[in-house]
Design a protein around this nucleic acid. Structure first.
Lengths: 110, 110
DNA sequence: CATATATTCAACTTATAGGTTGAATATATG
DNA sequence: CATATATTCAACCTATAAGTTGAATATATG
């Protein structure tokens, strides 16, 4: 799986997006991250594994505690991938002709 | 499932991202979209259903042919969601203090 | 040392993604 | 009308996500 596959997969779940949002306030432990959710600690632990696999969080062990912090690179990759399509949501209907006559895309994605 | 859930889920698969890329060149039929892939037409038909469910493509039936075209709104939603984290990939290490002293996020995601 | 805390591991369930093959449906065309 | 084409539907398989519960592991603490 590519970086984008893993990042999109990880971000497809609202719990994981909330965890990402939470980590903008700084490092947190597994228990801290689990606290707002009505699910088991184990479930959150699994979510963290998917975020880790995608490179969205990094883990730092201190004794028995695991501190997670945000790693923004995959978020940037996602944002940049989506930005390619910016002209499609910016274009007016009267700009359609210009779009249709533009040269075809090459090597998009992968 | 929310718009973002559906969009991230749809974009997590490389086949579907290639289909999205292909549709920047304009409308295409199911058979046209399937042509580059080493999988059955049925498999591509299923991928299109997920893209449709996410609002990423729209279908227009003309006789027996189904023409698909790109609907960029969910891509914009994804780009805007990821853009919230822009300061995290822009920030230098020496700006860490500023980040830590900034007010906490409110109502992020959903 | 005994116990509490933080976290993961293992096993299990259910739902869904991603693919297949074969049949059905709808529309063109000779 | 008979046949070819475009697409979906249905049934099936396998892998994995998303959750659970219970046990194991590692580290603190009285």
């Amino acid at each position: 799986m590519t970086t984008l596959d893993l990042a999109f997969t990880a971000l497809a779940d609202p719990t994981r997006r909330r965890i990402v949002a939470r980590l903008t306030r700084g490092e947190a432990r597994v228990t801290d991250l689990a606290q707002p959710f009505a699910m088991s600690l184990n479930a959150v632990s699994k979510h963290l594994k998917l975020l880790e696999r995608a490179g969205l969080v990094q883990r730092r062990r201190v004794g028995r505690e695991h501190f997670l912090r945000l790693r923004p690179a995959p978020l940037r990759a996602v944002q940049q991938w989506a930005s390619r399509y910016e002209r499609f949501w910016n274009q007016r209907l009267d700009a359609l002709g210009k779009f249709l006559s533009s040269p075809p895309e090459k090597g998009v994605d992968q």
